[in-house]
Design a protein around this nucleic acid. Structure first.
Length: 594
RNA sequence: CGGGCUGUGGCGCAGCUUGGUUAGCGCGCUUGACUGGGGGUCAAGAGGUCGGGAGUUCGAAUCUCCCCAGCCCGACCA
């Protein structure tokens, strides 16, 4: 039994100044966690109970799915990460350190290498596969900016699983099993979630989905369809493309004078102010979406070389750098400056036309366009001549892109790629991520097994993560209200919070004591506020702040005839008086016998 | 890493513009009394390198410079 008189707990009346998001504020105020380092938190007794409950749910669901738990060190040598290139690729986010001999070590941000090597170490036949292993481990990432308490720390706990299969079908099956296990895990945790399509990264090209808790404090933007079940991380949203149309019988392009029209808005002013383009002018006037704007970017690849890339997209769209970088990762894109333009004097900044772009064009610059710029579509674009544009340029006739790219911003109301209805955007906290790694790590580290026909077969892998400590904060975030925390029963630090609403030395203390013992004997977890030195108001406030799902008040009624106590549901505030003799039975039903 | 804001007893803040006795207030803490169904009342206490360093000055929490830390926005984030 937890007793307030002996519990290592101090609740705070006021919000801590360094906490902004509700989960952080309330968990500090309610005495669950304390900041111990930049991006690092100490779990206090109540917090640790909750953490362990969450961990227990995750572990139970992983075990139930048939995955086996192992445990690696968090402190790892450099070599495996050198082999996969991540010692360099991970950049400044990797915590690096040296031992006394000057050997390089790291605090692991994730454990793909170690799991791969472990399986390589022990298994060598296709008969040993498939296998899925997991661990629940403290991870370290030297985040440039830790924030929002437990939601983004530099030290955090993650459950990471890895599946090992002999072929793609096996990988798909392992992936599906993890997906199912994640659904039941988050459901059991009482955490609302949406599953969204995510980017798998440029090198993989395989399936990847994120589990997001749809909350405004989340750092991920995703979109979902208002009518069907499509949902995707904004980085992974695909733009419905018009069907390719014929380029026959289209009006001839016409060059026009557009002084100073270096922006889409000024171009539109010019276009809508003229009457000399009867063959081209749309019936409802010129819109930004009739224009094609072209941007020149420099791509810097991690291996060191650079190249130019031109992007073409409808003029009413801005480039979404996150979406762009997700497409070209691991390269980094930078808008071109005067140096790059001076290498291609044909290209006039502000008046870049599509005719000089593309690998078959005069410049030879790779040219990728928005999917809306499909073959047969007609555009106004730059004329590659200062103060001039061209109307009536037709994709596939007058210019030839090298391919398509998803780089345009997504806005509310855009069409759903699945059903065509409107998309809406929302924010979410990433609480899980599952993806098909493929053979990247197996190849880099030489994990292969002997196949049925005696040949060596490279193993294909999946990688699956749940942010355990983050999930605690996400649950707090999703369930808390104006009064304080409000835990789902399964992960709450206790089932029942007894408030003794009577003065020191009164009979109620003895009654509460006996009741607490009876409830514990019945299998319920009890926190008893047995303090005699605070007023009842304080006890009620603390009970609401701490957020145990059932509050049991032992007050005046307890000494009446017949004796009653009051039961209050923390989440709904519903209260009812229950006969003292019935309380244990009643609460066993309310809490479910564990 | 860029922009902004903030560092003053355990917590939340005022004081700084315009330098000047003993650095205040609320909460919390200690002791005592009252009170006892919504952070209650009264009294008496303890608790401070004013983030750190250097400088200006007769005198610095207050002015100047440098550094550090925290928060927010952005960039970044298998």
């Amino acid at each position: 039994m937890l007793r307030m008189t002996s519990l290592f707990l101090r609740t705070l009346r006021e919000d801590p100044a360094d906490a902004e998001v509700p989960s952080h504020r309330l968990m500090v105020r309610a005495g669950y966690i304390r900041r111990a380092a930049p991006g690092g938190f100490t779990w206090l007794p109540l917090g640790w109970l909750v953490y362990r409950n969450v961990e227990a749910v995750v572990r139970a669901e992983m075990d139930a799915a048939g995955f086996q738990e192992v445990h690696f060190p968090a402190l790892l040598p450099r070599e495996p990460f050198e082999a996969t290139g991540r010692w360099v690729e991970y950049g400044e986010t990797l915590f690096r350190l040296q031992d006394r001999r000057g050997n390089d070590y790291l605090l692991a941000p994730t454990h793909e290498e170690m799991f791969t090597l472990l399986v390589k170490d022990l298994f060598s036949s296709y008969r040993d596969l498939p296998v899925s292993l997991y661990q629940i481990q403290t991870k370290y990432r030297d985040e440039a900016r830790p924030r929002a308490g437990l939601l983004r720390g530099r030290e955090f706990v993650m459950k990471d699983s890895y599946s090992f299969d002999i072929d793609d079908q096996g990988l798909q099956a392992s992936y599906d099993r993890h997906r199912e296990a994640y659904i039941s895990t988050f459901t059991r945790l009482g955490l609302p979630f949406v599953i969204v399509s995510a980017m798998s990264g440029a090198m993989g090209g395989s399936a990847s989905e994120e589990f997001l808790a749809p909350l405004d404090v989340g750092e991920d933007t995703f979109v979902r369809c208002r009518s069907c079940d499509y949902a995707a991380n904004v980085e992974a949203v695909t733009t419905p493309a018009p069907a390719p149309a014929s380029t026959e019988n289209r009006p001839t392009p016409q060059q026009i004078l557009t002084p100073g029209a270096t922006s889409i808005s000024r171009l539109l002013e010019n276009l809508n102010g003229r009457t000399d383009l009867p063959d081209h002018t749309p019936v409802d006037g010129w819109q930004g979406s009739d224009t094609l704007k072209n941007l020149l970017l420099r791509l810097d690849h991690p291996e060191g070389h650079s190249e130019l890339l031109a992007i073409g997209l409808p003029g009413d769209r801005e480039v979404d750098m996150k979406r762009l970088e997700a497409q070209i990762s691991p390269a980094v894109a930078t808008p071109c400056g005067p140096e790059e333009f001076s290498e291609h004097p044909q290209l006039i900044k502000g008046f870049i036309g599509p005719a000089l772009l593309g690998s078959g064009s005069a410049t030879g610059i790779r040219y990728l366009v928005d999917p809306r710029v499909a073959a047969g579509t007609v555009w106004v674009s730059g004329a590659d001549r200062a103060d001039h544009h061209v109307v009536g340029v037709v994709a596939g006739r007058d210019f030839h892109p090298d391919g398509f790219i998803e780089a345009a911003e997504i806005t509310d109301g855009d069409p759903c790629p699945s059903c065509g209805e409107q998309l809406e955007s929302a924010r979410g906290i990433e609480i899980g991520h599952i993806f098909q790694l493929g053979r990247k790590y197996a190849e880099a580290l030489g994990l292969s097994v002997t196949g049925p026909d005696g040949d060596q077969v490279t193993v294909t892998m999946g990688s699956y993560g749940i942010g355990v400590s983050r999930a605690v904060a996400a649950i707090a975030e999703a369930t808390a209200d104006d009064l304080g925390l409000c835990w789902p029963r399964e992960i709450a630090p206790a089932d029942v919070h007894i408030v003794i609403a009577a003065k020191a030395g009164s009979e109620q203390f003895g009654i509460a004591e006996q009741l607490a013992a009876d409830l514990e004997a019945a299998g319920l977890r009890v926190l008893c506020d047995d303090r005699t030195d605070v007023s009842v108001g304080v006890k009620f406030k603390d009970a609401e702040l701490i957020g145990i799902p059932t509050i049991l008040v032992v007050g005046r009624g307890a000494t009446a005839e017949p004796p009653t106590v009051e039961i209050k549901d923390r989440a709904t505030s519903e209260r009812s008086d229950v006969a003292l003799s019935e309380v244990v039975t009643h609460l066993r039903a309310v809490c479910g016998v564990r």
